[in-house]
């Protein structure tokens, strides 16, 4: 079977899984359905010839499911009780449907699936090994051509770790009678 057929199957699976994740009232099941969607994405990356991404997505997905389950555990909330009134949700679904229909012409302007525009990348593919000495061209781009991008990524992760630490430190301060 061609890759495209498999991709239709996997993306359909991901859409169904995300609808399940949003509509289940049991929050733990919703988190598990979300993990299923992420693992489906890892398989899609494998089909699209991106093995490095598939590995990273696999690990990151498991970590994020663990983080979400830890959140459910520490707050002891298992069920979703809140419901949107039906009139509002019909209005918003209509908005989403209009967005779907209005954006369909946008996809006609894109290059055909399977024929990418290799403009900058053709240089990387041809000269990457000679200029950087890395047989893995992904590593060549991440750690040589676009190294400032990776530096920015590290800064973002650092800032988010600082943010999480700050949020949880304030909790202890409030407990010692700071008046807040």
């Amino acid at each position: 079977m061609p890759v495209e057929t498999w991709l239709y199957f996997i993306i359909g699976f991901m859409i169904l899984g995300s609808i399940a994740a949003l509509e289940l009232t049991d929050l733990l099941s919703a988190v598990v359905a979300m993990g299923m969607v992420g693992l489906g994405l890892a398989i899609a990356f494998l089909l699209l010839q991106a093995p490095d991404l598939a590995l990273v997505q696999f690990v990151i997905e498991i970590l994020s499911v663990i983080i979400l389950i830890v959140m459910l555990r520490s707050t002891n909330q298992r069920w979703e009780e809140e419901k949107e009134p039906p009139a509002m949700s019909i209005l918003k679904m209509a908005f989403v449907a209009v967005a779907m229909i209005a954006s369909l012409p946008l996809f006609l302007g894109l290059p055909q699936f399977g024929q990418p525009l290799l403009e900058v990348s053709s240089h990387y593919l041809a000269e990457g090994l000679r200029e950087t000495g890395s047989p893995n061209l992904l590593t060549a781009i991440i750690l040589d051509y676009r190294v400032y991008d990776t530096l920015g990524e590290a800064i973002v992760i650092f800032v988010s770790v600082i943010g999480v630490m700050t949020i949880f430190r304030n909790k202890r301060k409030g407990g010692t009678g700071n008046g807040s």
Binding site: L48, Q49, A50, D52, L53, V56, Q57, I60, L63, S64, I67, L68, P116, L118, V120, S121, Y124, L125, G128, L137, L138, A140, I141, I142, R146, D149, T150, G152, E153, V156, I157, S160, V161, V164
Partner: peptide, 21 residues
């Protein structure tokens, strides 16, 4: 395949985890 989007998506996946956290 085009390696440039793959390299940038690799960054984006990791940033998504930190956003979730």
């Amino acid at each position: 395949v085009d390696p440039l989007p793959q390299a940038l998506v690799l960054t984006s996946i990791v940033i998504e985890l930190s956003t979730t956290a």
